[in-house]
Nucleic acid binder design. Structure first.
Length: 649
RNA sequence: GGCGAUGUAGCUCAGCUGGUUAGAGCGCACGGCUCAUAUCCGUGGUGUCCGGGGUUCAAGUCCCUGCAUCGCCA
């Protein structure tokens, strides 16, 4: 059997966050699971690097798109090893072979008549990179970006997606596992109950050059999906690569729910138009919330994988996300939740079980796996064997269905049983009585054996911890090659194998409310760094020095744009005297919305002329640099209304 | 507005085709053990199974309806 599993290619306009990490950990876990089952596995991830947003972000940074995508793509690729993710191939949409394959496919579909040229006009939102319908607009603005879209009339190429709608509906209905979990399958079928529109697949080079040129019209480049989705083919050598057929016939995609439509509708119809068989399964997962709220850049609660690894370690992070989230549903991330899992599941249940078992083998059996005695098999031994057998069946089924939390539940039931087994058999009592030596050996053997199997099934989930366990159990390299069908059977432990005293697998963690190492917005991290630098360079200011700054509350009474200055606004304020202040906030605030606002100004700043206007002071504002290269600016103000001119200190 | 999902113990959730006193983990309380990472084991729940109505000998489980939350679509 072979397995081909992919993550989406991640759009490089943002740094990796918990969502990216989750998708990738899931895919990695599944690929390791299939390997454990003995499959020939191909696991692919990658980055999506074309498009307007990339070109803009690069321009803002003053570098070429190529330099920009190299930089961000490298950040993604550097993240995966830290999460113990071991992909076989990392594709980039800017790879030469990918570009060529995309063009070949476009030409082929075009030649078959499934791509046509047409004109249309509409409201184009730059943030969304798409045309919005009349009804989507709120107060004439894009609801997501709060910007009025541009009215654009454009000629473009379209993919005849509608032609394959009936086929797709039939295919989804005939294959219940094509899209899972079921809720997303239903969503897609519901969407397909309405007539499908054709898909716009190009952008004129007059507007965008950072893309793959259409082979049949060099005045256009490919628009996102035709470029991006094809990565799943190019990564395995489409069309003539030696392994293409083998892997494509078993292709499985893992995605988050935000890109369901492209993967469940655009992609199958594209594949059909190319004359290829459809992919096998599509696995859709939900979002991670942070403490009940959405993770978002503007709130500043974005969780970064490296912060999590620093604070908890990679095994705990992997275990946590896989155990906590019901695949398909949204889940919440919180410091409390991950620490609870770490302490109760990993440290107390698994870690302690491992520790006490190995210690006893070292103490009571000279550190070697003792020989079991068939005549001394007790009821509890039998129960344990049966439980492990049952666990393996459940584990395999649930892992195959992407129900990782259920698979782990099954494993932890056995861990619980083992802790009870130890109490029931009390090896420390058996050790005191020489006539019980055989019984003792059986118990110790059972423990070694059960832990060996647990180590095996935990490998896909926590590769590093499983490796440590394997080493302590004296399993060595045999386990690396072990597959579930054989190594899962009871009795695989070799008598006489040397067991070493265990090191602590998982430490317990303090349940502090504030974890200093816990994921924090990058903003504050940078701030901390700066602060440290200032301390070392003695950049501290004294109270007296600070007192020289005269900060006051000012009320804005008028605001005007300044000709030929697109960043500046001329403000008239009361502080309490009337002043004119020039502020570089025009990109973030419109004059109208400023009237009446109370802001904080530096009142004794040396006046300066800006664009011919004398500025008597300076307005304070907080600025945040967002991952996509844009900036967010918010004026500083007071928490309640106060008389203009009040001193701030 | 249309379609769909969800609503079960303090928290997170299991409960398939209706059938004895509705479950698990976490947390909490008490007791026990000592091999172990102050870990482990045992005991402890009078839960309006969202509200209302209905079908049935019997409903958390089916039907209708209302409310709440969420998703997709328009």
């Amino acid at each position: 059997m072979s397995t081909y599993v992919t993550t989406p290619i991640y759009y490089v306009n943002a740094m990796p966050h918990l969502g990216h990490a989750y998708t990738t950990i899931v895919t990695d876990t599944y690929s390791r699971f299939r390997r454990l089952c003995g499959d020939d596995v191909r696991f692919q991830t990658g980055t999506d690097e074309h498009g307007e947003k990339i070109a803009e972000a690069a321009a803002k940074d003053g570098i070429s798109p190529r330099e920009y995508v190299d930089k961000i793509s490298a950040r993604f690729q550097a993240t995966w090893p830290t999460l113990s993710v071991a992909q076989d191939y990392t594709i980039r949409t800017t790879d030469k072979d990918h570009v060529k394959t995309v063009q070949d496919i476009l030409q082929q579909v075009y030649d078959n008549g499934d791509i046509y040229f047409s004109e249309y006009s509409g409201h184009y939102c730059q943030g969304c990179e798409r045309f919005l319908t009349e009804k989507e607009l709120v107060d004439g603005k894009c609801p997501d970006h709060q910007v009025a879209p541009k009215q654009i009339s454009e000629q473009n190429y379209f993919f005849r997606m509608s032609k394959y709608q009936d086929w797709l509906v039939e295919h989804i209905k005939a294959n219940p596992e094509y899209i899972t979990p079921e809720r997303y399958r239903n969503e897609v079928l519901s969407f397909l109950s309405e007539p499908l529109e054709d898909l716009c697949i190009s952008r004129p080079t007059s507007r965008l050059t950072w893309g793959i040129p259409l082979p049949f019209d060099d005045k256009f480049v490919t628009y996102v999906w035709f470029d991006a989705l094809i990565n799943y083919l190019t990564g395995i050598g489409y069309p003539n690569g030696p392994d293409f057929e083998k892997y494509w016939s078993v292709a499985e995609h893992v995605i988050a729910k935000d890109i369901l439509k492209p993967h469940a509708i655009y992609w199958p119809t594209m594949i059909k138009a190319m004359g290829l068989p459809p992919y096998k399964r599509l696995h859709v997962h939900g979002y991670w919330n942070v403490d009940e709220t959405k993770m978002s850049k503007s709130i500043g609660n974005v969780i970064r994988p490296h912060d999590l690894i620093d604070a908890y370690g990679v095994d705990t992070v992997r275990y946590f996300v896989l155990r906590e989230m019901s695949f398909g549903l949204d889940s919440s991330f919180s410091t409390e939740a991950i620490i609870a899992r770490q302490n109760s599941d990993l440290a107390n249940d698994l870690g302690n079980l491992f520790s006490r078992s190995l210690t006893m083998i070292v103490k009571y059996a000279d550190g070697k796996v003792p020989a079991p005695d068939q005549d001394q098999i007790s009821e509890s031994d039998r129960e344990l064997m049966l439980a492990l057998e049952k666990m393996l069946v459940t584990y395999e089924q649930q892992m195959q269905q992407f129900n990782f939390h259920k698979a782990l539940q099954a494993v932890w039931e056995v861990i619980g049983l083992l802790n009870r087994y130890i109490v029931t058999n009390a090896p420390w009592e058996l050790a005191k009585d020489e006539t019980q030596a055989k019984r003792l050996n059986n118990v110790l053997y059972s423990l070694a054996e059960a832990l060996r199997i647990i180590t095996l099934v935990l490998r896909p989930i926590m590769p590093d911890a499983a490796e440590k366990m394997a080493v302590a159990l004296g399993l060595g390299e045999a386990l690396q090659k072990a597959t579930l069908p054989e190594a899962g059977k009871w009795g695989g432990s070799e008598v006489g194998t040397a067991i070493s005293s265990p090191k602590q697998l998982f430490p317990r963690m303090e349940k502090k409310k504030e974890q200093p190492k816990q994921a924090q917005p990058e903003q504050s991290k940078k701030g901390k760094k700066k602060k440290e630098q200032q301390i070392t360079e003695d950049g501290l200011v004294t109270f007296d020095q600070f007192g020289k700054f005269e900060l006051r509350v000012a009320e804005i009474t008028a605001a005007d744009t300044i000709p030929k200055a697109d960043r500046l606004l001329k403000l008239t304020v009361l502080a309490p005297e009337k002043r004119t202040i020039v502020a570089g906030i025009a990109e973030h605030y419109s004059p109208e919305e400023l009237i009446g606002k109370q802001v904080i100004i530096v009142a004794n700043l040396k006046p300066a002329k800006l664009r011919g206007v004398l500025s008597q002071g300076m307005v304070l504002a907080a600025k945040e640099k967002l991952e996509d290269g844009t900036e967010k600016l918010v004026l500083s103000t007071v928490a309640g209304s106060i008389a203009p001119g009040s001193r701030v200190a």
